[in-house]
């Protein structure tokens, strides 16, 4: 396990309201020639943050974002669509995010995020709208109760696959879980 378990997370949000933010936006393909996982935070949303000459864009919502206080990314629907590159959650986690909230998160990204201590949270439309409308808001995500709580005490709940939740909460290692199934795997191979 290379990440700390998450039980509750209280932090400010960074809001990207666009729909269909694909993994090419999260980390452009030219950064994929790396053979390690580390240090990809510098490339996260690179073309959204920097201009042609590598200078920070004035218009970027990431300007002035302190990763210490802004650990929750709120995004439009179908976040993380496109390529299966796990570099996307690696980059977001390395940047400092611990959770991504949307109304709808793409399957492969969701699965990849869960394996890297980046909590994917899919909320109902109403909660989503409220989050999109309040960038920088302080919210709490509670993975034990599966609830998102706003500063005003309002709550929204979210579903999460039970095993992924246990991995994130208790630091259960999925590869360890699979290796423990080895007798069943060997049986399966023998019976084919």
């Amino acid at each position: 396990m290379s990440f700390d378990p998450i039980k509750t997370l209280t932090s400010r949000t960074v809001v990207l309201s666009q729909e269909n933010i694909d993994t090419d936006q999260i980390i452009p393909a030219r950064f994929l020639t790396t053979t390690v996982k580390d240090g990809l935070g510098a490339s996260a949303f690179y073309d959204w943050r920097y201009d042609e000459d590598g200078r920070p864009k004035n218009s970027s919502v990431f300007n002035g974002v302190d990763p210490e206080t802004h650990k929750i990314l709120v995004a439009g629907s179908n976040f993380g669509c496109g390529s299966s590159r796990e570099h996307a959650p690696w980059a977001l986690a390395d940047f400092g995010f611990r959770a991504v909230i949307s109304s709808d998160i793409a399957d492969i990204f969701k699965s990849n995020a869960q394996k890297n201590g980046l909590l994917p949270v899919e909320v109902d439309e109403e909660t989503h709208k409220k989050l999109l409308a309040s960038p920088g808001a302080q919210v709490t995500i509670d993975l034990e109760t599966c609830e998102v709580t706003f500063g005003d005490g309002e709550k929204g709940s979210f579903p999460i696959e039970a095993f992924a939740r246990r991995c994130l909460l208790d630091g259960v290692d999925p590869l360890g879980h699979l290796i423990n199934q080895m007798p069943a795997i060997e049986d399966y191979e023998r019976q084919r």
């Binding site: 796990e86 699965s111 990849n112 394996k115 890297n116 095993f163 290796i179």
Partner: peptide
């Protein structure tokens, strides 16, 4: 189906993936 790199590791190590039926 496409998988992430962590799952590539799972398959290399066990020839299996953890997957709920979609």
């Amino acid at each position: 189906f496409g998988i992430g790199t962590t799952e590539v590791g799972h398959v290399l190590a066990t020839q299996c993936v953890l997957q709920r039926k979609p």
